[in-house]
């Protein structure tokens, strides 16, 4: 199976966005994300920190997949799966919200 077919969408799209009280600060080797209202702090390192930075600039999912895939010499599908895991983890931690529920 090639990368293109692996990336075919099988689930509905979800628009995630950061919560209203979210701040982050970049240090030399990590990014510290703070959700003030929920009192949640997360220290992001490695791929997670890179992904946070790219998404905060408004890069698309496909751009992030391309960058992560090149970074780690991994197939696009694997990069996409890793990105989804990070997004899910951030959503579960309360750093991201499903945009459709807060409109």
């Amino acid at each position: 199976m090639n990368d293109e077919s692996q990336l075919r969408q099988t689930t509905p799209s979800v628009r995630l966005h950061t919560t209203r009280n979210l701040y982050w600060v970049r240090d030399a080797n990590f990014t510290l994300v703070i959700e003030e209202e929920k009192d949640v702090t997360k220290r992001l390192e490695g791929d997670a920190a890179a992904l946070w930075g790219w998404l905060s600039m408004g890069l698309s999912l496909s751009q992030c997949v391309r960058l992560l895939s090149a970074m780690n010499n991994m197939p696009s599908a694997e990069a996409a799966s890793e990105i989804n895991q990070h997004l899910r983890a951030w959503q579960e931690a309360g750093l991201l919200e499903d945009g459709s529920q807060t409109q």
């Binding site: 080797n29 490695g46 890179a50 930075g53 790219w54 600039m57 890069l59 751009q63 391309r66 960058l67 090149a70 970074m71």
Partner: peptide, 16 residues
């Protein structure tokens, strides 16, 4: 831009 975004993260990782 992708060259910059990639290079910074990749090179920093190698330095770390």
């Amino acid at each position: 831009p992708e060259v910059v975004y990639f290079s910074v993260v990749y090179a920093r990782r190698k330095a770390e």
